[in-house]
Amino acid sequence: ALEKKVVKSRVGEKVSLPCCHEIPSSESLHKYRVYWQKNVTDVVLAYSEGNMIFRHERYQNRTEMDLWNLTLWISPVEILDNGSYQCVVQRNSVVVCDKTIILIVTADFSKPNIMAEVSADSCESTEMVITCSSHGGFPKPKISGALNNMSVEWNASWVSMSNLSPYNVTGKLMLNVTKDVNVTCSVEYDGFAKSTSLLLKKTNNCIVPPVPPPYNVITASIIIVITFILAITLAARYLPRHVCSHCCKRQDSVGVKESMKAPVSSKGTAETSSV
């Protein structure tokens, strides 16, 4: 079985892919043929009798090979470099070794951007559409999140020109917010992660109107008010007549008394004068 080794690198870095043979100090590269190829069919670099006889145009000015341990160096690494590489060494037309190396390339995603859009609002709750997006990374990521440290599942979608192109990822979440809540969005790719958090506040803190009193309370209150008004009306009509008639009776009695006293007074005067 062919020996396989996994090498990881990020876009823009310099990476080394080790071969399976080292030229002895007593020999030179002139006795060997060395082939570095990608995905079996594409030759990256080839040496024969100590001289480079081929280099793929996509690797121009980005590759070099160590002339003793036959390590292939690639710099700067690109997303398209992701894949399987094979180092084949021949001596006198006999295969000395054949080794496969898997190069896994990653490109950092942007920091996730969280946006919240209110779709409906009321005193009790606020309905929001939460969108989390990140772009420019590789390989295809996974998007995850949490609400107040409780895991949630995003409805995710990805956009990429090809399987060896940067990815843009967008996740959506429908929330019914009844109180302030902290939402976290994480984009994970090949052991790396980028995260962002956002505090969502319930927007409408309106005052709930007071509950009206029961029907029987309203009815009793109306009866009391009507009774009070009738009492005032009757009192206003009755009291003036009663007071007036009482005053008239008092005036009549006073007049009678005065008329009775007058003759007595005149009689006394007459008696005095006769004496």
Rank of each mutant, 00 (worst) to 15 (best):
K8Y: 13
E13G: 06
T106H: 00
L198E: 09
A231C: 15
M128C: 04
L239D: 05
P18S: 05
N39H: 11
T227S: 11
V183W: 00
N69T: 08
P209R: 03
A116P: 03
L67P: 03
S84W: 10
M161H: 14
S134R: 04
F228K: 10
T233D: 05
I101E: 01
W73Y: 12
N39R: 13
V105H: 02
G145P: 01
T126H: 03
V11K: 06
L72R: 01
F109H: 02
Q251E: 11
N113V: 03
S245G: 05
A146D: 03
S122Y: 00
V211L: 04
V243H: 15
S16D: 13
S125T: 10
C123N: 09
Y238C: 08
V159G: 06
K140A: 07
R33S: 02
T41R: 09
N149P: 02
I104G: 04
V129A: 10
V275T: 12
N204Y: 12
S26T: 13
Y189D: 03
V129K: 15
I222W: 10
P18E: 04
D66Q: 03
M128Q: 06
K179A: 08
I53N: 13
R10S: 15
L103F: 01
T178D: 07
D98E: 06
G171Q: 01
N155A: 15
L175A: 05
N148Y: 00
P210Y: 03
V105S: 01
S48L: 15
W73K: 14
V169G: 01
K267M: 12
F138P: 01
H242C: 08
H135K: 15
I114D: 01
N176P: 02
S165A: 15
V181E: 12
T131M: 04
S26W: 08
I226S: 13
W154E: 13
H242I: 11
K4M: 10
E22N: 10
P240K: 06
I226M: 13
N113I: 05
P166D: 09
A262I: 03
S93N: 14
T233C: 08
Y32V: 00
K261H: 09
D98G: 03
C206S: 07
W36C: 00
N148S: 01
A107R: 01
M150N: 05
S165I: 07
T269V: 09
K140T: 07
C97H: 07
N205E: 09
E64Y: 10
P214Q: 01
G268L: 13
A46G: 03
I207C: 04
N92L: 09
L103H: 01
H135R: 14
E64N: 14
V88C: 04
L67K: 15
D98R: 03
A193P: 02
K8E: 09
D66V: 00
K111A: 11
C97S: 10
C97R: 11
V264F: 10
K111M: 08
